[in-house]
């Protein structure tokens, strides 16, 4: 019996503690103007440097996609939202390029695994988190759209795998072997 009373007493103190916090916050918001609410969309929140937003497909210097259609992103994608169709490139040093590269934004869970998996740093993420569409077909982002987003490229980039910039592959070349061998013996 005594134990029960002490337990109930504990509840009372906890409730009181909570109420004090609520009321102080309320008073602080009213009188000091320290509000967490922002006036979206006029005002925008500052997000983390590593925000995983809408994808960008990187280009080579000549404007062709950096992607070599290796299907790594499509393979690793847990939402199965990436569709690739590979084709034979006319450039003999590249060989393979994506004829079709589509991301279904309604399926995408923005986990960033595609960016991790990409051996070419062809797919990266921007910090854009607002993607709205008027129709379902609009929700599937096509290759051309993913490649040509100057507004996003100028803005800050979001999540990318943390690799040494010196190791980054350049146009058609592949990363050094050591990059792939994570488990060193």
């Amino acid at each position: 019996m005594e134990k029960r009373i002490s337990e109930e007493k504990a509840h009372v103190t906890a409730i009181l503690k909570g109420l004090i916090l609520t009321i102080t916050s309320l008073l602080r918001n009213i009188f000091l103007g320290d509000k967490p609410t922002i006036q979206y969309p006029e005002e925008k929140r500052q997000y983390s440097e590593r925000l995983r937003g809408v994808h960008i497909l990187n280009k080579r210097e000549d404007g062709s996609p950096k992607c070599v259609a290796c299907y790594m992103c499509a393979t690793v994608c847990p939402a199965e939202c990436i569709t690739i169709e590979a084709g034979e490139s006319s450039d003999k040093s590249i060989e393979k390029y994506p004829v079709r590269f589509e991301i279904d934004m309604l399926r995408c869970v923005f986990c960033g695994l595609c960016v991790d998996a990409c051996p070419e740093e062809a797919i990266i993420m921007s910090k854009e988190y607002e993607c709205s569409f008027y129709s379902i077909s609009d929700s599937v982002y096509k290759k051309e759209f993913l490649m040509n987003r100057p507004s996003l490229e100028k803005g800050e980039l979001g999540y990318r795998p943390e690799i040494n910039p010196n190791l980054r592959g350049k146009g058609g070349k592949f990363l050094p072997f050591s990059f792939f061998s994570k488990n060193k013996s």
Partner: peptide, 9 residues
Amino acid sequence: ALHDSRIEI
């Protein structure tokens, strides 16, 4: 294997 290559790409 899992070795590092001794040659630059």
